[in-house]
Design a protein around this nucleic acid. Sequence first.
DNA 1: ACATGTGAAGCGCTTCACAGCG
DNA 2: CGCTGTGAAGCGCTTCACATGT
Lengths: 209, 209
Amino acid sequence: MHKTVPPATVERLPLYLRCLEELPPSIEGISSSDLAALADVTSAKVRKDLSTLGSYGVRGVGYSVERLRFQIRLALGLTKERGVVVIGVGNLGRALAGYRGFGEAGFSIVGLFDVAPEVVGSEVGGLTVEPMRRLNPVVRTTDAAIGVIATPAAAAQGAADRLAGAGIRSILNFAPTVIRVPEGAEVRRVDLATELQVLSFYMHQEGRE
Amino acid sequence: MHKTVPPATVERLPLYLRCLEELPPSIEGISSSDLAALADVTSAKVRKDLSTLGSYGVRGVGYSVERLRFQIRLALGLTKERGVVVIGVGNLGRALAGYRGFGEAGFSIVGLFDVAPEVVGSEVGGLTVEPMRRLNPVVRTTDAAIGVIATPAAAAQGAADRLAGAGIRSILNFAPTVIRVPEGAEVRRVDLATELQVLSFYMHQEGRE
DNA sequence: ACATGTGAAGCGCTTCACAGCG
DNA sequence: CGCTGTGAAGCGCTTCACATGT
């Protein structure tokens, strides 16, 4: 029944969820191959992925869109809104603060923090930027669950330490460096330069042999 | 000799390169296990990855830092600077335009484009935002190689089509939607909501059995 | 009849462990 | 001796193909 969901599947569940949420309300059911076409994956992958959540399809018919949305949200733990704190209010931090996709995805920014005195106190995306020493109390009172690091590389490890110290165990790191966190904490890294360099590889490779 | 580099390795090469570039000039050699520690991977992985580029290590000693940097840059096709055009100058587009990491990684933004008349003509990060119809000529004259989509989801497919039409075959998509491109083009997707939702899964999972 | 759910096969990545070589 | 480079084993993900169920 509740087998453990493989990491590769976990990475695709948000994709499926997004595709399902883009469907017009008139569409009540969907087959694995139709969903596969929307998500640009194979239908076998869709079926295997969904089957790890349980048997929610109907043979000969397909899946109920609404049921699927519910089950994926459940599996991802999106049953309640999760608070996000952002450290580093530079270009990227500002972009994150103004990003509307948060709410739709089940998250809300509950705190912006920076070390620079000239930034602290300014209003960004409806929130006032606070000094780092306010991190712990804000995390405590808002019950924030996720920390986003949007600092320069040199400040990233320090930010991670502060987040860990505040009890945050899920970190999204936009700084272009590897950060170390205590056992039990989870870090995901998003690195623009890496993405471009990977594209560069395949571009470069094209002309080969 | 030049075996094909596995995708998993390609994704790690930028990481190694970054770690190597952060080293002080005094360090001339490095072992696979030291590099592994910096990159937070296993030493066997480092050796296997580097061996696909050729045999550039010295048994009993390690790798020459400079040689490794050169070989990784070569493999990634970072021998010449590559031009990047950005479509969509909202919060994210602005953040990208101001991002300093581009240059260090071997890229430079050569064009910013938007459909909104109130944005076109404004100066962002040292470049003037241009209307979409200027895309083709700019790509042609600058020989831009990569397109970044920083539009809202609804405009992403159109942006991708325009990029493909301009001859761009490497696309980095920040819009939260799946885009389709012609055969032979490469797309990488960076999705904030997906990252947060994956974190949410593991957070949620923690309390289990 | 038709689409799901799933064993089984296939494939690629990771890890192991050691031969090879400076 | 120390560390690289690499076959071989182990493991997980993907794909196949069909039994299963409505």
